[in-house]
Computed example of a mutant assay.
Amino acid sequence: MLSRRHFLRVAAAGAGAMLVAPQIVFASAATDRRFVFVIQRGAADGLNIVVPYAEPAYASLRGPLAIDTANAAKLNGTFALHPSLVQAAQMYHGGQALFVHAVASPYRDRSHFDGQNVLETGGTAPYQVKDGWLNRLVGLVGATRENAIALAPTMPLALRGTARATSYAPSALPAASDDLLTRVSALYEGDAQLHGLWASAMNARGLAGDASAHQDPASLGKLAAQFLARADGPRIAMIETGGWDTHSAQNARLANQLKALDTMLASLRDNLGPAWDKTTVLVATEFGRTAAANGTGGTDHGQASVAMLAGGAVAGGRVIADWPGLRPADLYEQRDLKPTASLDALIAGAAAESLQLDPQRTATVLFAQAGAQQPVTGLIRT
């Protein structure tokens, strides 16, 4: 026999439950600007995403993994973009995307769980902070309607905190009938604990409208755009992507991952319409990968990686990098790309400028444990 709580989960899943990554989280705030955080779980290899083709040590370190830039978009005289990122290259050359290289959070070990915890909470060490920086950002903006909505089976840590959250998740399962949903609504009408959760879920379902979302990248981008473009929809979003841990067979796997990311971002852009001009998308990972290839056609856990900003609001067409080099003496612990840029400072500056907040106050609220660091500014068009 199903418990009432379990039945609620089953019925909500019929309304739509995402069974596989990626996952999306939304927050509604008192602004007409949009800010989207895309996390690449698994440690994305920045050296093969934004390729330092002019760096003499790159080809020798990477060997067969070195990206042939003959068919890659040249970003400048030093860096080229992975060939799978066709749409991202167009955004870059159209002034709607930029890249920040050799960037990292304060975390300096190589555990996915600990690295993601530091990235999502905004702390300087794992499990130091209990809530997420994206949740604190919602509080800074000032929420309206539903404070947050998650398209995910669980709420990502970056959005956990005092801001209220609900969820919606697309599903490949048959849609629940209106009769079933009405019966469940009646069942929970008098339940003090579950009535609010169900009502919130039904509200999210209503916002989704006729998206008929699937789990492929193009459909996911379209669904995100459908939420964000609505006048009564969310303004802050989080999208989770997984599969970036490329210990083996990296070239094929990374190419597929980047093609999916590229397709999702292009779908988001194309379906947002005029709202794209007020949108900033930040793409980042918990840490990078080793400078040298390993013995199984991949790379191992490293340090610095690359972050991307895309959107019509972005002052793009550039690569921001204090490039440390790839000679043995240049590497972190003689194995990793050395961090020379702060991911926290990038997030604080991008979020503040995107949502018209004070950058220094935003940095202090989002990354209090890091002390008085200077947020990166000049990222967003005025």
Rank of each mutant, 00 (worst) to 15 (best):
F227H: 09
K130G: 14
G132K: 15
A165F: 03
D270G: 10
R183P: 01
A293S: 12
G123E: 04
F287I: 08
T162I: 10
A204V: 11
T121A: 02
F99P: 12
M202S: 05
H93L: 06
V51S: 14
A17N: 15
T362G: 10
A321L: 02
R253E: 03
S84T: 02
A186V: 04
T69E: 04
L187F: 03
A88C: 13
A66P: 04
G42K: 08
L337K: 00
Y168L: 02
V50Q: 15
L159P: 00
K74Q: 07
N117M: 02
L197T: 10
A351S: 10
A260H: 01
P126I: 13
D270T: 14
L187E: 13
R269W: 07
A21G: 08
A70K: 09
Q116W: 09
A224F: 00
L254D: 11
I39L: 10
A125G: 12
A80P: 13
G233Y: 04
T279E: 09
R381S: 11
R381K: 13
T246R: 13
D32T: 06
D191N: 00
D68E: 06
T285A: 03
Y58P: 06
A199L: 08
Q215L: 09
R5C: 06
S200E: 05
A372R: 05
F99R: 13
S219Y: 01
A104K: 09
L8Y: 03
Y92K: 09
P83N: 01
V103Q: 04
S185Q: 08
Q334K: 07
G233L: 12
G297S: 01
P156T: 00
A97T: 02
G209K: 07
V38I: 13
V376W: 01
L207V: 11
D131A: 07
I236H: 07
A57D: 01
A97L: 06
H93S: 12
D336Y: 11
D68R: 05
A30I: 00
Y58G: 02
P328L: 11
R34C: 15
T280D: 15
L228H: 02
D262Q: 01
A363K: 03
T154F: 06
L331P: 07
F367D: 00
I67V: 05
V36P: 04
A284W: 00
D344L: 08
S111I: 12
H195K: 09
A29N: 00
V50I: 15
E55D: 07
G311H: 10
S171T: 13
F35K: 00
A372K: 11
A225M: 03
A72W: 14
A29M: 06
P274K: 09
L258F: 04
F99L: 04
